[in-house]
Design a protein around this nucleic acid. Structure first.
Lengths: 194, 194
DNA sequence: AGGATAACTGAACGTCCGTTCAGATTACAA
DNA sequence: TTGTAATCTGAACGGACGTTCAGTTATCCT
């Protein structure tokens, strides 16, 4: 199928343009991008892409790229299924990590972990945590808490005596705040980059 | 400073629009968005935002949002520094997780980890790994490898006898591939979502 | 209160954009 | 080879877009 492969290549070019410019290209730019000489050729291509679910247009013809184009990562079900071949790749759904990981962007921060107090929870020194500021923590949430003038990561546990902060490392003991307990936020995700 | 707070609110609205539409709004849309009655008011605001580094315009006046607007997560240096107050929040730099984590989007896939063979490396069952397909692994890279008809995560180690695949769990022994070694890709990041 | 500066209104302008249409070219099947 | 459908070219059109300007209103400082 030579036509489908060419379409795949055009989709790749659109993804690339999006990554560079953070917007959809205009018709004039797509002339260069695809090597067409008529805007009507672009128009036809866009119609096909719209039907295929890659983009949508509003009432004035403005283009909005859908997740299949803006997403940076293709999803594979499980590690056991193996890796996709060249043909399979194109059909797999794509996702944006930001939308996947950050539910409340206005209150979400990223910070680097120091210390090994949560190492048994798989949070190692140097890891990055996404912290949501604001909501009240639930039982066993991992929180950023201020204890003795220092900020650390701990499990948030409610018990009969009140609230205690529990590490995930047998080297350390849990902490029960005496006067005040300041919660910076709740850990929503952990990220490790190699 | 009431003016700065209002500017902050407008920036928040732009972020929100971006999140919904995945594009910059037009002048007409910004009239509604900000409650202005003249496009010139929008024009002035955009000039200030351009000078402040929130967006840029090309030769035809088209707007491109810069990372400070498109980014979903604000960066905090270290956990020890504490949490920002309302005023500090606005000045902190923002980042896009996709750009931060995915260098080569066309060849990057996301899959879920099964098994505990890499648990001492902080990779737990249920975690998500971002895998880049294609490049040759370096010493001690974590790779997705096919061994005995099954795909697993292992350290990739070159030694005098050739290549061996080493787990990060004393329960398991390393594996030395006899005939063929199939590498699905290299693990570039680990993500855990709560 | 007064005077200067910044911010906003309203209208107008030129350009670029997406769309459309007739005709040419290519691709494919019989 | 011939016929049919799909694709592309080239030109034209109307509308929306970003920009500009003169004039008004609001804001700030002394």
């Amino acid at each position: 199928m030579p036509r489908d492969i060419q379409l795949t290549e055009k989709i790749r070019l659109l993804r690339q343009f999006w990554r560079l410019e953070h917007r959809a290209p205009t018709y004039a730019e797509m002339l260069d991008l695809f090597g067409y000489k008529s805007k009507n050729a672009v128009f036809g291509l866009l119609q096909k892409l719209e039907e295929a679910g890659y983009l949508s247009k509003d009432g004035h013809g403005r283009i909005t790229f859908l997740p299949r184009l803006t997403g940076t990562v293709r999803i594979l079900g499980s590690i056991a299924a193996g890796f996709p071949t060249q043909e399979e790749e194109q059909e797999t759904e794509a996702i944006t990590l930001d939308e996947y990981l950050v539910k409340n962007p206005d209150n979400t921060f990223m910070l680097t972990v120091r210390g090994d107090s949560m190492i048994d929870a798989g949070i190692m020194p140097g890891d990055i945590v996404l912290v949501e500021k604001g909501p009240k923590p639930n039982q066993n949430d991992i929180v950023v808490a201020r204890v003795d003038e220092e900020w650390t990561l701990k499990y948030y546990v409610r018990d009969n005596a009140g609230v205690r902060l529990e590490p995930a490392n047998p080297k350390y003991k849990f902490i029960r705040p005496i006067r005040s307990l300041e919660i910076g936020g709740i850990v929503r995700a952990v990220i490790r980059k190699y």
